[in-house]
Design a protein around this nucleic acid. Structure first.
Lengths: 111, 111
DNA sequence: TTCTTTAATCGTATATTTGCGATATAAGAT
DNA sequence: ATCTTATATCGCAAATATACGATTAAAGAA
C-alpha cells in the first residue's frame, strides 16, 4: 500500500470524509452530546460519564478539536470545551446537500 | 487496549458512528457521487474514474454495502450497485436531528 | 515551596483500515 | 470446451486508530 491516496480526491470530498471520520466513533458522538446538553463547558465530567480512561477521552477530544468540531481553551489545570456550531453547521449542510441535489433526479432504485 | 469498548455505547450512537465510518473515506464519497449521478447501475466505471485499483474499489463497495448505504446485485460477471436512498435518508435525518434539537437551547459558544 | 487537582502527552500493545497484486469465480462469447 | 471479461476474494504490507497506564505540566491551595 505504502501511501495514502486520499489526497488524490477533491478537497470537498476530503473535507467531508474528515468530518465523517471525526463522527465515526460512538465515544465522540457521546462527547458531542454531552457538550451540547450543557450550557457551560465541561472537561472531566466527560470522563465520569464515558466508559473510558481519562487519557482516551482526552485523545478523542483532541480529534474532535482537530476536525474543528469543538473549541477548547486551556485554563491552567482545567480545560474548557464546547461545540463549534458554525463548523458543524457548515459540514452538516454540505453533507446534506451533497445528495439532496442528486436525489431528486434519481429516486428510483435500480437494484 | 485489547478491546473495543464500542459496544458500551448506545445503539443509536453506534449506528450513527457506523454510518459516519462508511462515509469517512474520500473514495467512498466519490463512489456515492458516481452512483448518484447515473440512473443506471455501474460497476467497473467506478474503477476507471477513481485513482484506485480494482480490488480496492471492490473493497470500498463492500464496506458501503455492509453499512447498508448501497444495494448490490451480482449478475454473473458484472454486478450492479446503486444507492439505498431509504437507508441514507434514515441516517441523514437521524444525524441532523441529533444536534438540531440541542442547538436551539445552546447556540452560544462559551469558549 | 510543596501538595493537590486536572488534563495533556508519551509509550506501548493490539486491532482495524487501506491498498495492491494475484488468484478465483461466474457467465457470456467463440 | 475454451477464452474473455468483470468482479470478488485472498494474502500480505504498511499506516492509522483505539485504548490504557504512567508521566508531565500547570495553576491554585496549603
Amino acid at each position: 500500500m505504502a501511501f495514502h491516496k486520499k489526497e488524490e480526491f477533491s478537497q470537498k470530498e476530503q473535507d467531508l470524509a474528515n468530518f465523517a471520520k471525526a463522527m465515526s466513533h460512538p465515544a465522540r458522538i457521546a462527547i458531542l452530546k454531552v457538550l451540547a446538553q450543557r450550557n457551560e463547558c465541561i472537561c472531566g465530567e466527560i470522563v465520569d460519564i464515558l466508559p473510558l480512561a481519562q487519557s482516551t477521552v482526552s485523545q478523542h477530544l483532541k480529534e474532535l478539536k482537530n476536525a474543528g468540531l469543538i473549541n477548547g481553551t486551556v485554563d491552567g489545570p482545567r480545560s474548557c470545551y464546547c461545540i463549534n456550531w458554525k463548523a458543524f453547521e457548515k459540514f452538516n449542510s454540505e453533507f446534506t446537500s451533497l445528495f439532496n441535489n442528486l436525489k431528486v433526479k434519481n429516486e428510483k432504485a435500480c437494484c
